[in-house]
Design a protein around this nucleic acid. Structure first.
Lengths: 209, 209, 209, 209
DNA sequence: AATGAATGAGGATTCATTCAT
DNA sequence: AATGAATGAATCCTCATTCAT
């Protein structure tokens, strides 16, 4: 009764619901056409609300897309946790599987974010900053995971491996986009996790070379 | 030689030269702003020719950007060769270095192509098709290289490793874009090449696990 | 009454009024220059609203011109009624006079419609369909009139005479356009009505020859 | 040998042939889209010659379309003659049949001409003048025919009937355009000729009313 | 007798955004 | 909490025409 705030019976123009509809439409459009291709008119058409209503909920287009990325990132971030139990090898492989599955389920923030990352316009979009920011968060979580696995890696190796892990994850995501449905994202992520583990072990014993 | 052509170095309308200027301008703009962000007016301003002249050389914007990708890909493809001599480990590492260097030098086709890859508009841009096509070419070349190294890998492993190699290469490229200048692309590619080699060897001895 | 609405005669954006102004301007331009010759810039200039505002009220140029035809046809259709009283000869002559007068007063839909009729572009304009549709309505009304005059004509003759009546009416309209002001449209229409009546009588007594 | 100028063996860029091809293409395009809709690019595409070549043969677009009308009118004018023999009734009916058949065969000049007639742009196209000019020629020929039939009509009646005949002919032509193929142009023209004859006879006996 | 290349003006339409209600 | 209407700037692209060769 207290936990799940009951919606008032009279749904006199429910702002929260409208906001959600706009975001849903914006995700769909931005996924199809990227940042520039996402026009307010298109979003308006898709969500059924007039363009001017979108401006009631969001300051401008940039703000809208930043919100799309934030919401999608939160969803993704909640979808995976660092698994515990077993040895580091099993845990890292389980992690790979989880991350891959989360990406298959909610790939929006990554797709949109990567689009923005690849652009370098003179005056950057706020949405791009938002993505690079949440990307940093994800990276820190990966680094923490590597440390936590207790292989005793030096910070230098952690940094290199983190960058490598992240890059490959993103690359695999793109491969899935490019290759259509005949690319097995989960299988690739498992190969990736194994690679990563081996690299870490080797990097540890031979101290970086 | 003296009678005609008084003007020092040809001054008659030179279509080939104009085409080149347009493509140069288009590369610069598309690299900054992606497909939708590349306006004909921007390209026109950058190359000095009026917008209508661009349409003499290219059917439409899509055609122009497809041409940009094609030309840029050709440049990149010519910039690296499979190195010979030494053992497979040394050769694969040398290859990694080369590919990385080529990407640092002419990253246009990849940046633009990846942008297009991430979009999925209902009616696909021809430019996207062009990129996916040249990407296939690159992939075949990588697969051929893996076979040529004589490790005797089964085709299944070649396919998986090729996809993985390609994906990571693209991911590393993006990492460099996202991280600015403080990401050492060449170092990462060498780590990658080593990973790849080890994966190949292991995949070979243990047949898939 | 005093609190709100201080401005004398509503000054809030009035969509209905704007729509009317746009249509008025479009009639004038389309009448002068036909379908292709009617540019949105010309209409915009004539009605005072910016081009983009025209697109708030009409989906596109085609939609605008179809609306012009519809409105103009309605005006024309309301301007004449089948006269009653007297014998059929007098009534048919009165009808001819009325139709002619209505055409002199509001010839827009017919001029524009005929222009469209003469074109046969591969992908037909919706405006053309609209005209052919309202033209059918007018034709049915003429046929009904012929039947109502009680000459007991067989349907076959009604159809032939209707087509003939319609065609000649349109032809006379064109003659007036081609000949400038020195063609007496009303006189011609009376001659036409007489012709039509005689043809009907004869067609009736001699059954088709 | 002298009558039909033999074409030189070496057809080194035959100007006459190119001109014909351009005119053929222009007829096709203008028939589809009217005066404004006929773009040089479209004509160029249809005839295979570059746009600049069209300007070698014709001063400008207006000149091209005027030439189209002239050529098409000549064809039509040659396709019918005032028939002799028999009584006036038979002759006028035969004439109707001929004119109708000629229009079915080469309707281009009339269609295009009528399109131009219906427009009233501030600065008239030369092509419009050309059409109104050839239309006058046709009208004079009809008037001469009416006189020649020897019914002894007063000039006033000849003028009225000529206008009426011409108008109806054009109206019937449009009816065929509007109604598609299910309008029997020849049948309508025969009805028309009969009407015309009867009107003439009556107008003669009752002196105009 | 032709044509490849160019060009400024103008074509329809969409853009992100605002504002009065 | 929303929206109908408006708007100036920008979008892609086509226009008729020219000119050097």
């Amino acid at each position: 009764m207290a936990l799940e705030r009951q919606t008032p019976r009279k749904r006199r123009a429910d702002g929260e619901e409208s906001r959600r509809r706009i975001l849903d439409a914006a995700v769909a459009v931005a996924t199809e056409r990227g940042y520039e291709g996402t026009s307010i008119a298109l979003v308006s058409g898709k969500c059924g609300l007039p363009a001017s209503s979108i401006y009631w909920h969001f300051a401008d287009k940039d703000d809208l897309i930043a919100a799309v990325i934030e919401r999608s990132f939160d969803t993704w971030l909640c979808a995976w946790t660092v698994p515990d139990g077993d040895g580091p090898r099993e845990r890292i492989m389980a992690l790979g599987t989880q991350v891959a599955a989360a990406l298959v389920d909610s790939p929006d923030f990554l797709r949109l974010g990567l689009m923005l990352t690849l652009e370098h316009r003179p005056v950057e979009a706020r949405a791009r900053e938002t993505f690079l920011h949440v990307r940093q968060q994800a990276k820190r979580r990966i680094a923490a995971t590597l440390r936590e696995f207790g292989l005793g890696l030096p910070e230098e190796s952690v940094a290199l491996l983190t960058t490598y892990a992240m890059a490959t994850a993103e690359g695999l995501f793109i491969a899935a986009e490019a290759g259509g449905d005949n690319v097995d994202l989960v299988a690739l992520f498992e190969l990736h996790a194994r690679q990563l583990y081996d690299a870490a072990v080797r990097s540890n014993t031979s101290e970086g070379q």
